[in-house]
Structures are given as C-alpha cells and as structure tokens.
Design a protein around this nucleic acid. Structure first.
Lengths: 212, 212, 212, 212
DNA sequence: TATGAATGAGGCTTCATTCAT
DNA sequence: GATGAATGAAGCCTCATTCAT
C-alpha cells in the first residue's frame, strides 16, 4: 500500500497508464453523452463502451457529473486556446477571424459541441459553450469600444448575445447537416453580420414608420 | 346514461371543475419545470405546489412527459397564433413586426420560454421553440423570395437559423435580466439585423482580404 | 336525511331499486372477474360495465373483496341448494346424482365456476368451490359409512379429495371446450369412478408386484 | 477484455458467486410466493428474506414475474425428468409408477407445488403444473391406445383430466396435512383409480337405472 | 489498479377508497 | 342515492455509487 497522493509524480509509467485509461473513459463518455444526452446516459454504458469495469469509473471521477464537466471544460478550453492563438498578435482582430476558428473547431468536434450546447444544466452554466462564447465576445467588444472601433453607445452585452446566437444557430445546423464547410459557413455568417444578407425592406423598422 | 365520451358536455359544473384543476396542475408544472428543468422536477413537487394529491396528476395526464409536452405545445401554439394574427393582412410583413410580437410574448411568459428553449428533448424536437421559430422564418423567407423581396441566391435555411439564433439569444438574456423592454429589445435586434450595429471593420471579411 | 338502517324495510320501492342496482353491479363484477381474474380487475372497470359511477360501488359493498366473495358464496349457495334439492328424499343418494347436478350447474355458469376455482385466495379458502365440494363429499361419504354403504376402513377425507379432483378436472375442461354436454360428462366421470375406464394392467399396483 | 458474453466462464469464482446469489433469491422467492401468493408477495419482502438489497433482485431477473416463472418452470422440468427417468426402460409403464414418482417429488417440495398449482396466471398456462400433468398423461394414454393397452374408444383427453384431478387433489391434501406418506398416498390413489374404493352402489349409474 | 456484484434511496405510477356535490 | 374527482399509500423498478476481492 504505497498508494500515495503523489504516486503519479513518483511513477511516470503509472501516470502514463492512468492518463490513457482516463482518456478512454472520456472518449467513451463523450460518445455516449452525445448520443443519448446527459440524463439518459448511464455509467454502466459508458464503461462498457470503454471496455472497463464500472467501478473503474470512480477511480478517475468523483461522480457522474464530473466526466461531463471535464469533457466540456477541457473541450471548451481547447476552443478557447485555438481562438486566442489565432487572434494573438493580430492588431485588430475581426469577428471573421474568431468565427472561422470557432466554426472550424465546432465542425471537427460536433459531438462535443452538441454536448456543450445541449443540457442547460443549472450548475453548469459556467461551463456552457454559450457562456464561453458570450463572455468571449463581450470582452472582445469591450476592447473594441476601448479602441474606439465600436461606438461607446453600443450595448455590448446584447450584441454579444446576438452574435453568440448566430454562431450557435450555425453550429446547430451542423447537428443535422454536413454541409456547408466551415469556410463557407463563415462567409455566410459574415455576410449576415455585415447586414448584407437581409434587404432593409424585409427587416423593416421599429417602431414601424408611419407608412407601414 | 354513464358510458358517454362527452360526459363533460353533460355536466358543465364538473367540466368547469376539471378544467380548473387541469389549469392548476399545468401552472404548477410550468413553475417547477422552469425552475428545475424537466429531469430534476418531480411529480410530487408539482402536485404539492398545486395543492393537490399526487394521484390527481394521472387523472389529467398520462405520464410525466405529457404535462411537459402539453405546456410547450399549447404555449407555442399561442405564440404562433399571436404572430400570425399580427402579420395577417399586412401586405409586406417585416422581421420587425414578427420580432416585436415574439418578444412581447416571450417577455410576458419567460418561464414558458425557458422551458421551450431548454431541454433538447429527443422526441420533442418538433415542439421545440427553436424549431417553431426556424420553421416560421424559413417559410417567411421563402415567401419573400417568391415575392422577390429576397434574392433567390440567399440561403434561406441558414438565414432562418441565424435569425432564430439572434432572437433566442435575446430571449435568453431575459432569463437573467428584466430589462430592456420588448420594445427596446426589438429596436436593438433590428439595428443588429440591419447591419447597423457592427462596423464593417470589426466584422471583417472572409476570406480575409490581403490587407488583413 | 331519513336514511336509516331499516330504510329498506320501510320503503319497498327503494328496496327493489337497491336490489336491482346491486344485481347489476354483481353481474358486471362477475363478467370482469371472470375475464381478467381478481387482481387484474378494477373497481372502475366493473362500474363502467355496470353503467354506474365508481362511488356507487361502495354503497353496496364494503370493499373490492366483498363483491367477489358475495359472487362466489351466493353462487355456491345456489349450487348447494340444487344438489340438496336433488338428493332430498332419495333414499340412497349416488355420486351419479350429485355429479350430474353439479355438472349441469357448472356448465350453465361456467364463468362463475372459473372464478370459484380460480384464485386460491388465502382468506377465501372457506368460500372456495373446491372446499364446498370437498366438504359435501366428505359428509356424504361419512353418511355412507354410517349406513354401511361404504366400508369403515375407507379414508373418507382422501376419497372426498379424489372425487373432487375428478369433478373439478372435468369442469376445468369446459373452460376451454364446449363439449361434451353435462349428461355425457356425467357418464364419462361415472365410468371413471366405477373403475371401468382404466384397465388394471394400465393402472398397475403399488407397491409393484414382483413380476413388474 | 471486458465485453464478453461468456464473462462467467472466464471467472469461475464470480460465476460461482452469481450462481449462489441467484439460488438464494430463488429460495427466498419460493418461500414468500408459496406463503402469500404471487400478488401479495413483494420484491422487498423476498429480498429481505434473502438478506440482500432490493436492487440485487434486478441483477438476476428482469422483473417480478421472471423469478416466479423460473421457479415453476425449473421445478416442473425437474419433476418431468424424474418421471421420465423412472419410466425409462420400463416396458409397460403403469400409472402406479408415474403416480409414485410424482407424489414423492410433490411431497418433498410441497411449497413449490403449491406455487405451481396456485395462480392460474394467464400467460403461464403452459408452465402450469396442471398443464404439465395433463399433457404427460395425455401422451401416456395415447401411447397406451397405440399399444392396445387402452381401448381405442376411451376419451383420452378427459381421462387425462380426471387422473390429473385425482393427483392434484391428493397433492392439495398435503398443503394442509403431513400424512400419509407418498407410498401410502400412492396406494390410496391406485385403489381409487382401480375402482376398488367406491362400491358400485354408491357410485350409481348414469343415466339412472329405472330402479333408482 | 481493476472489477462487477451489491446497495438502497428515490422516482414514477396504480388503484382501492373517500367525500363534497 | 348517485357521482366522479381527489387522495395517498404502496409497489415496482432504475441507477449512481460503494466495496470486497
């Protein structure tokens, strides 16, 4: 019984084995959660797909929730890093750049995003894809206001929600369809955000002009 | 003369009582579902809030699912009617008109919309608020194409998703905040949809122009 | 509120009405019990078939059990009376006479007998068709012993069980078939009871004779 | 290497454990079912008597029904084998032989037979003790007809029911009494089946002779 | 470390029975 | 008397979690 909190650090081989098993569990969890949703998924089914015993799950995760949270937070951390990497060093980052990175990632890992957008699980709010996007856009827009690239009068909070809505709307589309490609999707979204997609007459005004 | 499918019609008093009880259950269910989500809600809790015995639930609904579905489908039917009524007779309906009606309804019945947007419940897809909006906008845009108010080249399916994304993004905001009013929200969204909210330099282009 | 324990006696009309309703409930109960068995039958179903409200049931019977018991005990009392009437005045009653009466009644009211033979309901033992038959035959055989028509060495208790077994075996047959008629059935059973149906070589002996 | 339908075979220790638990559940179920009948018995009570948690039941049986069916079908299969083994190789099998084997088994496992004769459970008909006996005797008698040991005119179907009735009547007796022994019971039944137990004058004739 | 049998709280649902109308 | 809405105890079953091997 030399099991120790620092066992991992002491024994690189063990550590590597642990990491692999953990990864297998996460992969299985991802597949099952994506397929059936958080509530309908069962630990037994996950571990069966991972070709491991049920009990093993609890050697790596505290409870059912944890693998789910881990899955999403690790996935979203990856997304976050990719976006930051893209934007890093760019003098004046555009939505175009951000959207393209997000779409590329989302298209590649659709099942993960299905999860991340799916269960509006109370305590999870923080680790929700939506929240991450909203936060990201909020910060970006605030920065843009600081840089005077966006009028100070703009309602940043709402704008961030609107943009997030468009992005998630697009990703949702991919849950049912395989086209268009992330590139094409980016172009479509940009056109939409730029205001070029909807004729003014179709959009209308509010309050309605007298003529209406 | 008992065996009669129209027993209700025979006795108005009973019929009224039944309707009232049913309404009370639905109201309680709405509150509880909105507060805790479908899965965490329990029949016992619903009926306790309705001040009725557990068994009574099953006199009005087949199972746990049914009240949920009823709630959403009846709610969305109401929304649908309101929108249709607003647009009815208007020669050239605008997004402005539609958005304003939707926002007014959504603001009034926030908990219902929280439900309707919440659980991405498998078999419910059809009675999802998102689906309803997507379908509605899809049809409206198709009509606009027919009327040549929208270029034939526009990708209706995607546009409908984008617009729906913006609308639900706005409604989501209200789940956490009480302002702005539906009127103001409509104005904000219209400005966004019209392309006037985001400067072109911020949006950028895709593929990025050489200059970027 | 002149409802009184003696109301029935005071008001013949009411009494007649009560009797009729009671009869209708019993008829419906008989049908439903016979069709689905005691446990699967429900008060609601019975009263629906009787074209009466659920609550009405409890104006006539204390609980679910009571109608069942009533049904069987009244039915068996009828059988008892028929048999006694047949045997009454006969100097030396035979099994033939008893069997024929029983078969005639059982054939006419198969559903009742299905009930009476069906649920081996603990507390019901006493009001079981089997028990009634066993008791009847036991008494008859004891009487026969007293009259020296049956050897004193005979094991009356067992004989009564055997005869009852044959009789119920025959009645069971009718739960699945409509022939033969009670007359023919009586003849078959008598032949069997008389020992003429099974050749001695087929029956064999116990303990086996050396030759076997 | 987890996913394996033959997991049991891989690990004899676990396999043995599983078998033991399963046996304990079946034993407890047998006791409880026999004592209170199928409907009044509860999973909780069964598992309490088995000294196991409720949930464990469902690791071994799909639902409440399954243990009951298993109990009876396994029990009857055992009876069937015993009888067949006894009769195997005997040139001219007699009822004596069959009855004795049946009685010996029934006496040893009275509670099982109580179950098997008890609930006339709809879908169970096939796995009813009564049905098994009837089928067995039917086949035996048909064979006897083929061998000319029984007149071709005999109504095999009815005879099988009568014999079964006598046998079950005898077994029923044991549900309330401990004597006589299977040997003595066999003798009594044989005497009855041979026609030596009931004087012709007591049996009578059908239709009644003029003199009666 | 890995396993999978065992656990039991908790959820949904039924239905005999009551009671206000 | 008749009704049927309301009741709630009780039962079956699931599944996240534990623990002995």
């Amino acid at each position: 019984m030399k099991s120790d909190a620092t066992a991992d650090a002491n024994n690189p081989a063990l550590s590597r084995r642990r990491a692999r098993t953990r990864g297998e569990i996460l992969a299985a969890a991802r597949a099952v959660f994506a397929e059936k949703g958080y509530h309908e998924a069962g630990i037994a089914e996950i571990m069966q797909r991972a070709d491991l015993g049920v009990g093993t799950y609890y050697l790596y995760f505290r409870d059912k929730h944890e693998a789910f949270v881990t899955l999403i937070s690790e996935g979203l951390a990856g997304l976050r890093n990719r976006v930051l990497a893209q934007l890093d060093g760019v003098a004046e980052p555009t939505l175009a750049l951000a959207a393209h990175t997000i779409f590329t990632a989302a298209y590649e890992e659709r099942d993960l995003f299905r999860l991340a957008l799916m269960d509006r699980n109370e305590s999870l709010q923080t680790w929700n894809a939506r929240s991450l996007l909203i936060d990201g856009f909020t910060q970006a827009l605030l920065q843009a206001q600081t840089d005077a690239r966006l009028p100070a009068s703009a309602s940043v909070a709402l704008l961030a929600r609107f943009i997030t809505g468009v992005i998630t709307g697009a990703i949702n589309w991919w849950f049912e369809h395989d086209t268009p490609s992330p590139d094409e999707m980016t172009a479509q979204v940009l056109s939409f955000l730029g205001g070029g997609a909807l004729p003014a007459s179709l959009v209308g005004t509010w309050p309605p002009t007298s003529g209406a």
